[in-house]
């Protein structure tokens, strides 16, 4: 079980992630959605201790199965207890190494013997729907979807208790996306890992996640089950986001839009960061930041 409390990430004095709390139970998939700059990727990089550049954790805690995730511990836990699937499989794999070797390498690093690692690698390939003959291939000999399957195999090799998938299918074609998501879901079910699926794609999250966390301007604005958040969104931002999404079959015509642009981290408005774009903003929204109460951070909802 992953428990994140009041996480704050700053870069150059700017709060990129601003007090985010959530939990993910074993076997559960949390879909973390938001637009670019909302802090959804930063949140997960911070949890995994993979922040780079000027960004650093400035407050809060992340606890995995009772163990606080500190810088020193993460070094050992990544790979073993925490698995990753990133957007671009091409950059997650070593181009000069056969993919079978890369999978067994993950096991070898964590003390599995050579023969055992090779046997497990073949099993893992099977598990992600690739034949054992692919073990001898180099990444460039595989398609994008196959490469992402290899990355998934590496991520679950040590049966992690936390799986972080950041836009795992964004770089892939629609028909391949579906297959890779299938593989990811199966792998997740079999390992029972608490899973965070970071994505900008609401449709994808709707199909793959149990619960959803919506981020806007560095804060969580709404959380709940998929049915709650996608079916009857309560935060004006989530609601507007659902409406503005084009859908197959709605027919040609203008979409309801959210006016303006998401704010850059260093120019976030005071109070609720969404208030300048919000159709139901109250006076209070410009001054006080609403806390997340009952799964929604909105004065209009809480006061109304």
């Amino acid at each position: 079980m992953l428990e994140v409390q009041d996480l704050v990430v700053t870069a150059g004095g700017v709060r990129i992630v601003d007090g985010v709390s959530f939990e993910v139970r074993p076997g559960e998939v949390l879909g973390m959605v938001g637009e670019s700059g909302s802090g959804k990727t930063m949140t997960m990089l911070a949890v995994a201790g993979l922040l780079s550049g000027p960004a650093r954790v400035a407050g809060g805690t992340a606890v995995l199965d009772g163990t606080e995730l500190t810088e020193a511990r993460l070094e050992r836990l990544r790979g073993r207890r925490i698995g990753f699937v990133f957007q671009d499989p091409a950059t997650s794999l070593n181009p000069l190494m056969r993919v079978g070797t890369q999978i067994s390498e993950v096991l070898r690093i964590h003390g599995v013997s050579r023969g055992e690692a090779r046997r497990r690698a073949a099993e893992l390939l099977e598990q992600v729907g690739l034949g054992p003959e692919r073990a001898g291939r180099y990444p460039h000999e595989l398609s994008g979807g196959q490469r992402q399957r290899i990355v998934i195999a590496m991520a679950i090799a040590l049966r992690p208790s936390l799986l972080i998938a950041d836009e795992p299918t964004t770089a892939l074609d629609v028909t391949v996306q579906e297959q890779v998501m299938q593989v990811l879901r199966t792998a997740q079910r079999e390992t029972g890992a608490a899973t965070v699926l970071v994505s900008h794609d609401l449709g994808l999250v709707a199909e793959a996640a149990h619960r959803i966390a919506v981020m806007y301007a560095g804060r969580l604005v709404e959380t709940g089950t998929v049915e709650e958040v996608l079916g009857a969104p309560r935060h004006p931002y989530s609601a507007a986001l659902m409406r503005s999404r084009p859908r197959v079959g709605t027919g040609r015509g203008p979409l309801p839009v959210i006016p303006g642009y998401p704010p850059a981290p260093r120019s976030r408005p005071p109070g609720c960061a969404f208030h300048p774009r919000c159709p139901v903003a109250l006076d209070r929204c410009a001054k006080e930041t609403p806390p997340l109460v009952g799964g929604v951070a909105c004065w209009a909802v809480q006061d109304g």
Binding site: E35, S36, H200, I258, Y261
Partner: peptide, 15 residues
Amino acid sequence: LDVSVQAQIINLLLR
């Protein structure tokens, strides 16, 4: 583009 911005650009193109 982001979802909310996509809708804006789609509407602009329609107009």
